[in-house]
Amino acid sequence: MNKIFLILSMLSAPLFFSQEKAELKIENNKNIEKPLNLTTKQIKLYNGRFLEFINALKSSDHAVMEGLLADNAKKVVTDDVYKKLAADINTGKKFEIIKTGYKPLMNGSNYPMIQYKYADDKSSVPNEVITAVFENDGKILGIKPFKKMK
């Protein structure tokens, strides 16, 4: 009999000590709805800034490149990063926009983004894609070249 009471008390104890939360409210102020595509005015601004950066990269003008970067990007960009970008991006070719929109980052915020390919690449899936992420004021937050592996 004692064993039965012990077993019943062990099974019923979690029921007596459990609590019920009546209402659950989740707040996320960072997810503000953004349109899926950029306006033509935004594309013109961001594309112009990207092309200015590419011209400065071609001539190795660090002062102009620094002026086009966002404050957060200036903290992490070094001369080695500029050299790597100059090696990975063919600055002598023309660029063509293939995609525009917003890129979500790990902190939960969305930033304007434009993806480019080289104009002479006529394949349906480009071999090289360059993604440029901008702040809303047009400053460059990051540029990432990507080459398709064979």
Rank of each mutant, 00 (worst) to 15 (best):
K93D: 05
Y102I: 11
A70W: 06
K83P: 01
V64W: 01
A87N: 08
V64T: 15
I98M: 15
A63M: 04
V64Q: 11
E52L: 15
S59W: 00
D71H: 09
K93N: 08
E52P: 06
S60L: 04
G101N: 07
S60W: 04
I32S: 13
K93T: 01
L36F: 09
D88E: 15
D79F: 00
E66L: 06
N47C: 08
I89C: 00
T78M: 06
K34L: 15
H62Q: 14
N55R: 10
D88A: 14
K58H: 10
K99S: 10
K34H: 15
K41M: 07
T78K: 15
L45D: 11
K99D: 08
K84H: 02
A70K: 12
A56L: 07
K44Y: 12
G67Q: 14
D61C: 06
K93V: 00
F95Y: 05
N90L: 04
Y82D: 03
Y102Q: 10
E33Q: 15
E52R: 15
N37M: 07
V81K: 06
G92C: 06
K30S: 14
K34S: 11
Y46M: 13
T100N: 14
V81S: 05
L85V: 01
N37Y: 13
S59C: 01
G48K: 08
L38Q: 06
G92M: 04
